[in-house]
Design a protein around this nucleic acid. Sequence first.
RNA 1: GCACCUUUAGCUCAGUUGGUUAGAGCGUUCGAUUCACAUUCGAAAGGCCUCAGGUUCGAAUCCUGAAAGGUGCACCA
Length: 747
Amino acid sequence: MEPKRDVPTEFLKPYNPAESEPEIIALWDKSGYTNPDTMVRDGLTKPDAEAFSIVLPPPNVTGTLHMGHAAMLAVEDILVRYARMNGKRTLWVPGTDSAAIATQSKVEGEIYKKEKKTRYDLGRDELMKRIDAFVEESKNTIINQVRAMGASLDWSRYAYTMDEPRYHAVMTAFVRMYEAGLIYRGDRIVNWDPNLQTTVSDDEIEWKEETRPFYYLKYGPFVIGTARPETKFGDKYVVMHPDDERYKGYAHGQKLELEWINGPITATVIKDEAVDMEFGTGVMTITPWHDATDFDIAERHKLEKEQVIDDKGILLPIAGEFAGMHIKKARPAIVEKLKHKGLIDHIDETYVGRIATNSRGNGIIEPQIKKQWFIAVNKKVKFPYPPRPTSGRVEAGGTERTLKEWMREAVESGRVKITPERFEKIYYHWIDNLRDWCISRQIWFGHRIPVWYRGDPSRHGEAGAVEVHCSVEGPNDNTWERDPDTLDTWFSSGLWTFSTLGWPEETADLKTYHPTSVLETGYDILFFWVARMVLMSGFLLGDVPFRRVYLHGLVRDGQGRKMSKSLGNIIDPLDMIKKYGADATRLSLIIGAQPGNDLKLSEDRVRGYKHFANKLWNISRFVLENTTDVEMGELNDADRALFKEAQDLAVQASKNIDHFRLDLAADSIYHFVWDRFAAEIIEESKPIMKSDDASAKASRARLLYELLTLSLKLLHPFMPFVTEAIWQRLPQKDAKLLMVARWPVNG
RNA sequence: GCACCUUUAGCUCAGUUGGUUAGAGCGUUCGAUUCACAUUCGAAAGGCCUCAGGUUCGAAUCCUGAAAGGUGCACCA
């Protein structure tokens, strides 16, 4: 059949996303309409329109796009495009994250592979140069991959966690919190990673279960249990529950002489309620330097603490003949000696214990007491009041509360709402168990702590021993030495909603777009990040960082397994985009994904949605072929009823988007377009359009055209590429770009 | 140990405040098709809605309990 005049010939071929998508991206870029200022300038958004803002959870600057990113980008882009089409002053801020530990170990690894050099060989400055070069070289990869998803981010506001404005924000935040007494330095038990030679926060620890021998040792008249005999050398306190009838005969503080691993020692009886009477024999000895529980007990009773293992996992002189050995090697030798001395009561080989590992570096965590920087979460301080965008200094009239109380209050008061709601409970639970947050790290790549010392460096931090200076700019003479530690990456991430908007300057962006409207992220970083942002924003700005938290689930493979290299079940979003298009990839990540629930993704699903994009393409061809030469008239009653049906669907879909049920919204539009519009309305239109009934034809042509434009608008947030590509080929339309067309339902 | 989530067709999931014969996609089987469709359209088969109680005129939906799978948290040395 000859193509009709005026129908673009591209429609004769199937929709080709690989060809079309780069053109569409260029078209959007040229418009500049992802920048709300341009929208206002061109009169597409009213200057006083309600603001809608999201900051992108920054992907790792040296990483590549995975399905989790793709799902995140799809959800956020839908919300952003929907808001933009609804006339809101819409801003979506892009950024990338330095991923401190991950990036540093990656670069260190590569250097070692090529040059057999460690970071200590290179020195701090050289390593930083190498890392910066690596970051600069690799950052475009992730940025281009983000763009390929169709994400309508405002790149003019791009931020990187390690760039100059963010450095300034991080330093300012530290100084203000330090001045308020919320940041302190102290000797506390921390999670030490002997591999990476740094501390790790409580939340970064991943507990792994493992069956390993559990030793019952004779400790004088008691039998104590331990899975780690190599830590027991210095154990001179034996602890039991005060109510334990079995040990009524022993008094708190009582001294006992007994034979231990390396000879006779004096032990002291301690009664403490932390002991679980049900576990083992109900008696334990403590190792305060290398165990958090033991540390707490020691603190309560003011007991002595002694280091047994050094930073590299080597036993110290206290271990006697085992000193200098690595704990791994020492353990069997120690067990052998215990056996020899008859100190082993029995061994339980079926014990399932938990081992702490670093979720980022995979190393086994060794608790150590170290001088570190902490954020005091239980300390009452004055919060800025009333909230002011750039406030943060303690002001008269400020409300007194702790960071913990604030974090609870932010959600309890409804100022931050979490979707799905059940995560609010989990959030509270996390807060209630929160301990002071260790924010110093011994890696080099990161924002360095803005504290300088003068005096004997070996006595840093000790009262009176050195002078301490804390400021953004630092002291102006070189007699000072800067603290070598860097800040936990989540410290700077906690500022992200406002550091990206220019804080601590009092910028227009900050006033317009903060608090942000929605924070969208995976539920797996609720604590790492979401809670930290609430904390930071509360103290530094006196306000919440966002009004709504939307948590998406994890993307799993077709069988519900986590995607991993070792399973070989990774579905690469870039492959999917190449084969089926970004639109199909997006839909496959949205339909069937309820808030907070994991999504099972298979390639078949992506292929199915590619068919849908092609369906839409062909619907457009049919409609254009049947309307370009035909005069369009008013809708008759029957056609008006059909159009009403579509409008009702639009209202319903809008409601679903408002309630973050993007899955339902997308699904309902999909079915309307395919089953109702294409399969039924178009089918019944064929005889009408071939008939001689001019008025029926005029009405039907109008209906077809209206249904097409309506469908394109409704689908645009979900599948922006194909809808925009079709829109560009429409003869009549109410906006040059579909991206900035008006949403067909009034708020 | 405490808490949360999930359980509906072979597979992945809808089913929004309880209301006719419980739906879709993929898969399977059959049929049509130079008609907008690198296909599409039509049809069929396929379901003790995990189980046991309860509330109700009426339950996949609400309540109680159980089972299986999953996740989070916790100071079991």
